[in-house]
Design a protein around this nucleic acid. Structure first.
Lengths: 248, 248
DNA sequence: TATAGTTGTCTATATCAATAGACAAATTTA
DNA sequence: TAAATTTGTCTATTGATATAGACAACTATA
């Protein structure tokens, strides 16, 4: 975006090949490098970024490993990966409907669940006493077989006893909440940040180390404004962008 | 958040000291490391993250350089920095009012301006013909003397001729638009992503290389829905979080 | 005033990251 | 087929990154 020639920083704790891999990913996402088309040759990229050809090769090797590029000797290096998914966020944010039209299939996989005492933060958000029992769900959002989100979600254990079973069966938060008499809900607040993916996110989202994740911390409420769900979701920045719709 | 012990990745293109510096920043932002309090001693941090003490020292040195920590021989290492700013995003997103209550002073500094032909993307967003003249403003948002955002903004050059002078004088987009008869405007759409800061952002935002920026791409419109402004803003993830208010 | 705890400095070593150059191997084009 | 283009492999060198250990300098406390 803004297509400005943004250059590369040295001695910063992030290796040049990682920075260049990031730039290529950006280039793909922004349409600078077209899908299925050849990347500029290694020597051209090396000149463009002001580094040695071998450094560019390291970046490309990482992206080949990641499944984003495919190199063919004598022919060139080609872009395999599709565009970033655009995940809408608003008052009616829901995983499945949000990606409709961009993917043919999506669901939420339940990785694990547990019951634990609420931390101060979660108790406040859910309007419970600190230490009250809450159910924690660890989930992964999948679309067309690709992991697109990783979330940790908390519910009041008293009110939503057994919601982990509903999640495992339905693969949908919305469907699970229906079983507890909640036919509609709204997103009350969302706080957004970004960080490097940690070990768990790397594994669950099938990312290369060093990847960046967008982090949302959200509270969902009933139509009466009663808080029912607290969630922290992580999205791989290289595969997902978040779209804030106007009247939503 | 979610306070899970997230570990450190090796050979990923991001050096260990940079990853640990990121973790310490996270710890400060999330309240794990309290403001004005001493950090755990270097040996404890080294054990916690499974690295050598010298590696921890490199991370601390970077954060001392950055003004986040202060080390005192014999006593310990102390947290100087305040919490992250929480920047609200919604239909009525405005820089100055958004940070009210969190900072005592804020304004937008105009770094440079130029007139250029609109790219396809910008032309579409502003409803102009491709190649039509647009004014580009490079700005930096400052609060209490700290850089908190870096933005590139485009306006129709015909309709907003001279807006760069208004910006330089008033230090406010809202005030500048008033001079062109626009007393109110709405944010039509926002798309959110994250990436490593580029060279320009590093310099303008006074960041250490390797830092992550949150990126918003937004279109502002008049009350009639007519697009007037296209902007890409970058926020340092370590100093700013974005808050999406419910009914905004 | 010792003593323990903490940060600061130094030396040494091994590995990773980046540059440099040369040439092989495969593909496309003239 | 020959030449040009492009990716793949190899060797060598330099600097940054990370580990290891030892000890100095400073602070707080028993």
């Amino acid at each position: 975006m803004a297509g400005l020639a943004s250059s590369i920083e040295r001695r910063n704790g992030v290796s040049l090949w990682r920075q260049i891999a990031d730039k290529i990913l950006q280039g793909i996402a922004s349409g600078d490098f077209t899908e299925n088309a050849a990347l500029p040759p290694e020597v051209a990229l090396a000149e463009r970024y002001g580094v040695n050809r071998h450094t560019v090769r390291s970046a490309i090797a990482a992206l080949v490993q990641e499944g984003v590029l495919k190199a063919e000797q004598g022919r060139g290096t080609f872009v395999l990966s599709r565009k970033r998914l655009s995940y809408p966020i608003g008052a009616r944010t829901r995983f499945s409907t949000g990606l409709q039209g961009q993917t043919s299939e999506r669901h939420i996989a339940l990785l694990s669940s547990s019951t634990e005492p609420a931390s101060r933060r979660i108790a406040e958000a859910l309007g419970l006493a600190k230490g009250a029992a809450v159910i924690r769900l660890e989930t992964r959002g999948e679309a067309d077989g690709h992991a697109v989100s990783r979330a940790t979600t908390w519910f009041d254990a008293k009110r939503f006893a057994g919601i982990e079973d509903a999640m495992a069966e339905t693969g949908s938060i919305t469907a699970s909440l229906k079983r507890f008499g909640i036919n509609d809900y709204l997103r009350h607040s969302t706080v957004l940040s970004a960080r490097h993916a940690d070990a768990d996110d790397l594994a669950a989202l099938d990312l290369q180390p060093g990847a960046i994740v967008l982090v949302t911390v959200a509270v969902n409420v009933t139509l009466d404004g009663e808080p029912i769900q607290f969630a922290e979701s992580r999205f791989p920045a290289e595969r997902v962008e978040l779209r804030l719709a106007a009247g939503d």
